[in-house]
C-alpha cells in the first residue's frame, strides 16, 4: 500500500541526452529495467525513496495490528492476525531487498526510518482502539492497498514489480479476513454492530487519504507516469476504491460516514465528499495521533535488538576463524 511517496520526485535535473532517450525507449516498449542497467539518477533516487517508504510502511504497519494479537477474540482470529502481521514483516523485507538493488544499504534505510527522515504511510499513525479496528484495517486499509499495489506489479523496475507480485498474492487473504471480522460483528449484537460502525467511521476518511493528494496537487505525477513507476492517478485509484467499497459497506448494513455520498447514475460512480487535506498534511508531517509512539516503538525494538545482531556477527566470525584454523 503505502505509496504516498509516489507523489514526489527528487528535484534534480531531468535527464537528457542519448542515453536518457534510449532508456525512455526501453520503458515505452514495456521492457523492464534491471538493477545494473543504466538509469537516470532521478529514476534511481525516486525509486529508492518510494520502495523504501513502502517497506517502512509495511514494517510500521505491523504495530497497530500487533496491538490486538494477544486480545483476539478466538484462536481462529488470533492465528489469522498473527499470520497477517507476519506477512507484513515479510512484505517489508521483500521491499527493502528490492530497494537495496538500487545501491542503498539496509542499514542506511533503517536509519532513515528511525531518524524520522523517511516517511511511511499516514494511515499507520491512527490508533486501533477496538477489535473492530482490526476488521476495518483488513477490509479498508488492505483494500486500498490492493488497489494501489496491483498496478505496481507492472512497474518498470523489475525487482520492485517482482516484489509486488508476491505481496499482492498474499494480500488478498488480508482483506478477506478483515471483511469476515466486519461481517461477524455487523451480524452480531447491537453493541457489536455499533463497534463495527464506529471503526468504519474512524477509518473511512484516513483510508481515502492513503491514495495521496488530489491529482491537481501532485505535480510530479507526469514523470512517474512516463517512467511507468506509477500507472494510475491518485484520484483514479481513489474512485476505484470508493466504487468497490460502498456496496460492500451496504452489504454489512453499515453507513459510510459521508452525508454527501451519492451515486451518479450518468457517470456510474459513487461521488464522495470533501477530504480534509489539512489533516492529511498534519499526519504526514508527524503530527498524527500515533506518530511519536510508532517511531518510539521501532527505535526501542532496534536498540533492544542491537546485542542480538552483535552476538550473531561475533559468533559467525568465531566460527569462520575456527574453520580456517582447522583447514590450515
Amino acid at each position: 500500500m503505502y505509496t504516498q511517496g509516489l507523489n514526489s520526485i527528487d528535484k534534480i535535473a531531468a535527464p537528457d541526452g542519448e542515453q536518457a532517450e534510449r532508456f525512455q525507449a526501453r520503458i515505452d516498449a514495456d521492457d523492464r529495467i534491471e538493477p545494473n542497467d543504466w538509469m537516470p539518477e532521478q529514476y534511481r533516487r525516486t525509486l529508492v525513496r518510494q520502495i523504501s517508504q513502502h517497506a517502512h510502511s509495511e514494517i510500521v504497519g505491523m504495530l497497530p495490528e500487533g496491538n490486538w494479537i494477544t486480545r483476539a477474540p478466538s484462536l481462529r482470529r488470533k492465528a489469522a492476525l498473527l499470520a497477517k502481521v507476519q506477512d507484513e514483516g515479510g512484505h517489508g523485507l521483500y521491499l527493502y531487498a528490492a530497494a537495496e538493488t538500487l545501491g542503498v544499504s539496509r542499514e542506511e534505510l533503517i536509519d532513515q526510518l528511525l531518524s524520522g527522515r523517511a516517511k511511511y504511510s499516514s494511515i499507520f499513525n491512527y490508533p486501533t482502539l477496538t477489535w473492530a479496528d482490526i476488521g476495518a484495517i483488513g477490509w479498508l486499509v488492505d483494500g486500498a492497498a490492493i488497489m494501489n499495489q496491483i498496478p505496481l506489479c507492472r512497474c518498470s523496475y523489475g525487482p520492485y514489480a517482482r516484489a509486488m507480485i508476491r505481496v499482492c498474492k498474499e494480500e488478498s487473504f488480508h482483506q478477506r479476513q478483515g471483511y469476515e471480522i466486519m461481517l461477524t460483528l455487523s451480524r452480531g449484537t447491537p453493541e457489536q454492530k455499533e463497534m463495527a460502525q464506529d471503526a468504519l467511521n474512524r477509518w473511512w476518511w484516513p483510508c481515502l487519504m492513503m491514495f495521496g493528494p488530489p491529482d491537481g496537487e501532485s505535480q510530479h505525477s507526469d514523470t512517474s507516469m512516463r517512467w511507468k513507476i506509477k500507472r494510475f492517478s491518485n484520484d483514479g485509484l481513489r474512485q476505484k476504491f470508493v466504487d468497490a467499497t460502498v456496496p460492500q459497506a451496504h452489504f454489512l448494513g453499515l453507513t459510510i460516514p459521508d452525508p454527501t455520498l451519492h451515486f451518479d447514475e450518468a457517470g456510474g460512480h459513487w461521488v464522495y465528499g470533501e477530504i480534509d487535506w489539512d489533516e492529511f498534511r498534519r499526519v504526514l508531517a508527524g503530527d498524527g495521533p500515533c506518530n511519536r509512539e510508532r517511531l518510539a516503538v521501532r527505535r526501542k525494538a532496534h536498540e533492544d535488538g542491537a546485542w542480538v545482531r552483535e552476538a550473531a556477527l561475533a559468533y559467525a566470525a568465531k566460527r569462520s576463524a575456527a574453520t580456517r584454523q582447522k583447514a590450515a
Partner: peptide
Amino acid sequence: ADATMALQAARDVYTR
C-alpha cells in the same frame, strides 16, 4: 550473520 541464520531467515521470509 551466517549461513545457518540465512537459511532460517529465507524459510521465514520466502516460504510461509
